[in-house]
Design a protein around this nucleic acid. Structure first.
Lengths: 195, 195
DNA sequence: GGAATGACAGATATTGAAATCTGTCAGCTG
DNA sequence: CAGCTGACAGATTTCAATATCTGTCATTCC
């Protein structure tokens, strides 16, 4: 089960940590568990990550980066900016909603990790805001949108749609009518961006 | 300290409960504490409130109603709808921000109460949304706004400004630049409401 | 010699017994 | 007799002893 033959890398530790977090949850996942899963002593884990907090932060970053990547594909698309904006926001909502709905425990686990890694989350949000900025800037270029500051508008759009991507609202994502709420907010924002 | 002379009313119990919650916090405030503060036995409290949960819900409702009342004054004002909308949203944000900033512990206490009383919060939100609906409907009447469904638009505006009134964002209300973020979101929404 | 180990000290979490609390109700009291 | 009390059973919380974990480092092992 635990291949001691392979070299111990940061990558393998991160994978084992994700598995331990999935199995035990954020409160009970220990460094000793991770070491056990890898068939090494916990001292070896500390050779690659200075503290438990650093290990958890690295796992959090990996998780956040995976979402960023999917959305980056949409942001870089060639559809007209308004459609791209709607698609991007829908994709973000869909992704979050499915993660929360398919495996609530795992989602709760990563929500806890996100809570304790404000910095990593901040960078992730900055990354997403940058993607939004590119879409909105493309819109101002093509005349589809008209805003004084695309970056500020992007942050505003991101904040205004928080209800549909912030984990603290996860429990409401299964409520009936949530899709209509989402559409209503996006429609209002898109109208606000147009000339 | 505890005037046993007066008649024990639901009102007096609610006041004592607020005081106990303020002193001990939501986790340690017990029905026995409330009874002690009133100089009566805890059995008497149960004569007015069937359960501890019912008592806490009543306190929550009172607290929420106090906010609703202040805002109702603005919603019923006679300024032009756009100014009234901006004023109403600013007042909501200001009220929350001050409550959270002036006495963080009390705010945290009431946030916990709100968490456990989803129904009361739901009614409060419906109430606020109704106030917003009145403002927006006035705007569609005067031609300041143009929306197909004022009630839906009101909900959308309320949800889109969640970052500036939902307790789960309280920690960000002291961040520098929050006022600019607020203005950016409100500007975007107001533009979206205009014809 | 570079990577891994495991014993260790201090910090944190778990556990189960004791204390407190919730909700009820028969009876007291004014 | 309407309102209040206080004893009670079962649920929940507290607390201190016990166990586990984190992070270090001298030592071991290829």
């Amino acid at each position: 089960m635990a291949p001691t033959s392979e070299i111990l890398t940061a990558e393998r530790i991160l994978e084992a940590t994700e598995e331990v977090l999935r199995r035990h949850g954020p409160a009970k996942a220990t460094v000793v568990d991770v070491a056990r899963a890898l068939g090494v002593s916990h001292g070896s884990v500390y050779r690659h990550f200075r503290t438990k907090a650093a290990l958890r932060e690295a796992v959090t970053k990996r998780w956040l980066d995976r979402t960023s990547l999917t959305l980056a594909g949409i942001a870089a698309g060639d559809r007209d900016p308004e459609a791209r904006l709607r698609e991007w926001l829908s994709a973000l909502f869909e992704a979050k909603r499915h993660k929360a709905g398919d495996d609530p425990e795992l989602f709760a686990t990563y929500s806890v990790l996100a809570e304790e890694n404000g910095t990593a989350v901040g960078e992730h949000i900055a990354d997403l805001a940058a993607q939004l900025t590119r879409i909105i800037a493309a819109g101002t270029g093509s005349g589809a949108f008209s805003v004084p500051d695309p970056a500020a508008a992007a942050r505003a759009v991101f904040h205004a749609t928080g209800r549909f991507h912030d984990p603290c609202y996860a429990r409401e994502w299964t409520a009936p009518g949530i899709q209509e709420e989402f559409t209503a907010v996006v429609d209002l924002l898109v109208r606000g961006l147009r000339p």
